[in-house]
Computed example of a mutant assay.
Amino acid sequence: MQMSGNDLGDIPGLTVGQAACSTAETGVTVIVADSPAIAAVDIRGGGPGTRETDALGLSRLVGQVDAIVLAGGSVYGLAAADRVCTLMGKEGRGVGLTGRDDIPKSPIVPAAILWDLDRGDKRWGAEPPYRDLAEAAYRSRSTSINLGAVGAGKGAMAGAHKGGVGSASAAIAGGRVAALIAVNSFGSPYVPGTPHFWAAPFEQGAEFGGRGVGPHTGIADFPPDTAMAAMAGARRNTTIGVVATDIPLTRAQAARLAIMAQTGMARALRPVHAPTDGDILFVLSTGKGPAPDTEAAQLRLLTLGTAAADVVARAIARGVYAAEHMG
């Protein structure tokens, strides 16, 4: 069952802002929680670019976040989180350990970046655009989410095809789950030689074209080694995103959900989690109230994780499909 918006905006307590630079073909997507959200991260790619992901470990002090930033620009894009931190700190958001008004709080804003340095004009001199893009994204956030070559997906590629930002959601017993993904993958979202998405079995309605299921012929669908080497040389890799739910979770449950949700990337992209990819998935729980670690809660997590993998796969195909049709 789809939610009304079929995107991350269906999760109460979250807003999304996006901004992009057409000249540089790059951008920033900011996901902001109205109040600190339980968070986790799962990193599968061989070449990740991150900020503050270590803070989300189960043995760490802080298990909640104020926002998540996704950006293009490789290492330069990590600066986007600096501006989001500054803006949220000015609003009084973040962790405060002293109780003193003259010491600013520390917003927790993990970030992940994708590689788009070979797209557009990146001759930005001493000041890359990511701080300004982050501020524009932060100030424009809402529950209405544009898909395609927008935000962090502005300069994205999905294999040899256009990539972009995609989102999808679903209702399950007790709540909702949604994903927002910036698709800049090494692998292809399409069955080779066809217009059919690998994610086709999970499509709801005609949310990414209704093209149906193509001929899946297994390992023979991989391009030859020479083509794979050329693709790797292009370095157009990394699929990053956020899965969110309004079901209350413990930190350990959120970590397990992140692992289960990563399966959605494997359902929608082939190959995936390659040595040059930086594939990363964050999980956010905005749910309030107890998150019991009971047998019933484990069964609910099983259902939630399965649905999360489905919405990740659907979000990937929706992002690529939207980018296809943006011209």
Results as ranks from 00 to 15, higher is better:
69 V>E: 01
27 G>P: 08
91 E>T: 07
103 I>S: 07
232 A>S: 12
62 V>W: 13
77 G>R: 05
21 C>A: 15
144 S>A: 15
47 G>V: 01
38 I>T: 15
225 D>L: 15
23 T>I: 13
115 W>K: 01
30 V>P: 05
304 L>W: 00
298 Q>N: 15
165 V>G: 05
24 A>M: 14
245 T>D: 10
161 H>V: 05
87 L>P: 07
31 I>P: 06
11 I>F: 04
84 V>K: 09
146 N>W: 11
274 A>Q: 14
228 M>S: 11
50 T>R: 01
219 I>C: 09
64 Q>A: 13
257 L>D: 00
76 Y>S: 00
165 V>Q: 07
121 D>P: 04
288 K>S: 13
16 V>K: 14
23 T>V: 14
144 S>G: 14
133 L>D: 06
77 G>Y: 00
8 L>P: 09
67 A>I: 06
283 V>Y: 02
17 G>S: 13
209 G>T: 12
155 G>W: 00
136 A>T: 14
235 R>Q: 07
47 G>T: 02
37 A>N: 03
112 A>T: 09
18 Q>S: 12
191 V>F: 00
170 A>H: 04
149 A>F: 02
290 P>C: 04
267 R>Y: 08
308 A>P: 01
17 G>D: 13
156 A>E: 01
207 E>N: 10
113 I>L: 08
88 M>G: 07
255 A>Q: 09
183 V>K: 09
237 N>H: 07
233 G>H: 10
90 K>T: 06
7 D>T: 15
290 P>S: 09
62 V>A: 11
223 P>D: 04
194 T>H: 05
137 A>T: 02
245 T>Q: 10
268 A>I: 01
222 F>K: 06
171 A>R: 15
144 S>K: 14
100 R>T: 08
192 P>W: 03
141 R>M: 07
165 V>E: 08
196 H>C: 06
72 G>Q: 03
296 A>T: 14
312 V>C: 04
78 L>Y: 00
224 P>L: 14
234 A>W: 05
278 G>T: 06
310 D>E: 14
212 G>V: 11
209 G>M: 12
64 Q>L: 11
319 G>V: 05
238 T>G: 02
75 V>N: 03
178 A>R: 04
225 D>M: 13
314 R>E: 11
209 G>H: 13
56 L>G: 04
248 P>Q: 11
269 L>W: 01
260 M>H: 11
115 W>D: 01
9 G>R: 13
115 W>E: 00
257 L>T: 02
109 V>H: 03
256 R>C: 08
134 A>K: 03
22 S>T: 13
116 D>G: 10
161 H>D: 09
272 V>R: 01
114 L>I: 09
112 A>L: 05
8 L>W: 12
87 L>K: 12
218 G>D: 09
18 Q>M: 14
204 Q>C: 12
174 G>A: 10
106 S>Y: 10
25 E>W: 12
34 D>G: 11
326 M>S: 15
43 I>M: 01
303 T>L: 14
14 L>G: 10
153 G>F: 08
166 G>T: 02
160 A>D: 03
94 G>R: 01
181 I>T: 03
79 A>H: 13
232 A>G: 07
109 V>E: 06
214 G>V: 11
110 P>T: 08
215 P>M: 10
118 D>E: 11
232 A>H: 04
187 G>W: 02
14 L>W: 10
